[in-house]
C-alpha cells in the first residue's frame, strides 16, 4: 500500500476514535462536582432569601443556574424519595427558607438542626423557598 494512503487511513481512524471518544464523554458526562468548582456567589441564607423575596425576577437573573455558596443555620433536615436529602436553612422569614437538595446517598448525620453550615449548590429558582440543587457540603 502506498505510504500516504496508509497515513491517511491511520489519520481517519484516529479522528474517528477521537470523535467517538468525545461523543462517549459527553453522553456519559456526570454532573459538575461542586467541590472542585469555584462558586459564582458567596452569600448568607438570610441575604439570599431576602433578594428573592424583594425582587424574584432580578434575583432569578442574577442567581439562576449559578453556583452559590450559602452559609446559614440548619432549620430542618428531610429525607425524600430515592434517599435524597433536603436541608433547610433559616432566613429572616418564618415562611420562606433556602432549601438545599443533596443527591442520593447523602449522609444525614452530618447535619444537625441549629448548627451553622456552608453549602454549595446550583440555584434552580424560587417557589416558596430559594431552591438549590446538586448540593455539596463545604464545611
Amino acid at each position: 500500500m502506498k505510504p500516504y494512503l496508509k497515513i491517511a487511513i491511520i489519520a481517519i481512524v484516529l479522528i474517528g476514535l477521537a470523535g467517538a471518544g468525545t461523543g462517549f464523554y459527553f453522553f456519559n458526562k456526570k454532573h459538575k462536582d461542586l467541590l472542585k468548582t469555584r462558586p459564582d456567589f458567596i452569600v448568607s441564607s438570610i441575604d439570599l432569601q431576602k433578594e428573592f423575596e424583594t425582587d424574584e425576577s432580578a434575583a432569578n437573573t442574577k442567581y439562576g443556574n449559578k453556583i452559590i455558596e450559602v452559609t446559614g443555620i440548619i432549620g430542618s433536615v428531610k429525607r425524600g424519595e430515592e434517599e435524597i436529602l433536603s436541608v433547610s436553612l433559616n432566613t429572616g422569614s418564618d415562611f420562606s427558607s433556602v432549601i438545599c437538595t443533596f443527591p442520593s446517598k447523602a449522609d444525614p448525620s452530618i447535619f444537625t438542626k441549629g448548627s451553622q453550615v456552608t453549602i454549595r449548590g446550583e440555584c434552580s429558582g424560587f417557589l416558596m423557598d430559594v431552591l438549590l440543587n446538586n448540593c455539596v457540603i463545604v464545611k
Partner: peptide
C-alpha cells in the same frame, strides 16, 4: 402544585 423545571434531576448531565 408548583414545580420548578430546573429542579428536575437526571443522572446524565447532558440529558438534564
Amino acid at each position: 402544585f408548583q414545580v420548578l423545571i430546573k429542579s428536575f434531576h437526571f443522572e446524565k448531565a447532558l440529558m438534564e
